[in-house]
């Protein structure tokens, strides 16, 4: 086994364990921390795939900002006492898990088979991918793509963020008026 394979199994294993922990812990704080572990090992996987910039942004955005917000809300609402009956029980839980396993089987089937006749296996793609080993995708390349070829989607994203910003302000302001 090469170093890359060993690292893949370490990061992949940790992210799977973390993901299972997210849905099994009773307390939201522990779930949130497990999710951070998953995100972090996913950043490791991104580095293995040669996407250093995405890995850094993954940690900054998910681990550094989004999960802190989650923790902030969990602490603010002091949710610990409510979590006792937070899980489905009995028959419903069984059905959910059976459906989940079916879903996973489908996903794996698609992952293994669906890409056979696509561009992924084509000679040009293999050549380009081999070229990446000596000439990796850098921040510069992503910047060029983002601000030239995909400028319109980028601007639309900023509109989405603006809409979210206004939405949050509206939600919070209404709360204040009710209090008064």
């Amino acid at each position: 086994m090469t170093a890359d394979q060993i690292l893949f199994f370490i990061f992949g294993g940790v992210s799977l364990i973390g993901a299972i922990a997210v849905i099994s812990f009773r307390h939201p704080i522990y779930s949130a921390l497990s999710l951070i572990v998953t995100f972090f090992s996913q950043a490791g996987l991104f580095v293995l795939l040669g996407a250093h910039f995405v890995a850094a942004v993954q940690v900054i955005v998910y681990a550094g900002a989004i999960m802190v917000l989650f923790l902030f809300v969990i602490m603010l609402l002091n949710l610990g006492t409510l979590s006792a009956k937070g899980v489905l029980t009995g028959k419903l839980k069984g059905i959910a898990i059976v459906l989940g396993i079916l879903f996973a089987a489908q996903g794996i089937y698609i992952a293994v088979n669906a890409l056979t006749d696509t561009e992924v296996g084509s000679p040009e793609a293999i050549e380009r991918a081999a070229d990446l080993a000596t000439n990796p995708i850098e921040t510069y390349d992503i910047g060029i793509l983002l601000f030239r070829d995909y400028l319109l989607p980028f601007e639309v994203t900023s509109l989405i963020l603006l809409a979210a910003l206004i939405g949050v302000i509206v939600l919070v302001k209404r709360e204040n008026r009710v209090e008064n």
Binding site: I23, V73, G86, A96, G100
Partner: peptide, 15 residues
């Protein structure tokens, strides 16, 4: 899939 199972099984909105 783990995410999907979580949405189906857990009842806590945050989780």
């Amino acid at each position: 899939t783990i995410g999907v199972i979580g949405v189906l099984v857990r009842r806590n909105a945050i989780i």
